[in-house]
Design a protein around this nucleic acid. Structure first.
Lengths: 111, 111
DNA sequence: ATTTGTTATCGTAAATCGACGATAAACGAA
DNA sequence: TTCGTTTATCGTCGATTTACGATAACAAAT
């Protein structure tokens, strides 16, 4: 963006958007699901499960880590990733709050 | 992206990611909240509430509309936006499913 | 010490995003 | 018709994203 106007929004809005952005790619959704199902944990396993190259997967993991959703522990030569409990708890709270704010049923009849 | 590999993922993963991506900007989170609170509905009102230019707001609305989250009805010279009930219902379902898939508590002790 | 296997990072390229001003389009009112 | 208001679109710019191969970094094994 030319100028970053993000600071004009509330912290909650920025945090919610950051979480949503981190989940805004199918590969990252898939990674989170794989980690939750525990069908994969080590980076190399994730690479096998995903139709992406190793470097690309590594980048997606980096983004998820930056968003606080994922955590990596070095296990010898490999790295074992798992969902970051605290970060995901906050993500749940933020997304849950958004779902609560925007109910399923239409509210009125402005339109 | 150089090559689009999105079609390698499941439809649900792609849809979830698309919803998340649409919500992946503070302005769009704010717009959804404003529409839900019904403090704004007409495009011009949203512009007044947001620290962005009219054209930028219009683009964000376009993205939300493309994601099926928002709906615009022409009301004379102005356009009245509201949350798309069906689209948002699906978004709720997809995000809810993701939250259900990834529980709050850590599942095991891989890491 | 060398090799092998695993992961992160670098460099690169194309595509998309986010923002804006300017302009077009569409409507209501005068 | 003309004017003012409202919204969408166009064109543009720089920043970011997504992807990949190549390479570096590092641990374990030979």
């Amino acid at each position: 963006m030319a100028f970053n106007k993000r600071e004009q929004f509330t912290a909650a809005q920025q945090q919610t958007a950051a979480i949503a952005k981190a989940l805004g790619h199918p590969a990252r959704v898939a990674i989170m699901q794989l980690l939750a199902q525990r069908q994969a944990c080590v980076c190399g396993e994730l690479v096998l499960e995903l139709p992406l190259s190793q470097s690309t997967v590594s980048q997606h993991l980096k983004e998820l880590k930056a968003a606080g959703l994922v955590q990596g522990e070095i296990d010898g030569a490999r790295v074992c990733y798992c969902i970051d409990a605290a970060g995901w708890a906050q993500a749940r709270q933020l997304l849950g709050a958004l779902l609560a704010e925007l109910p399923a049923a239409p509210i009125g009849s402005c339109c």
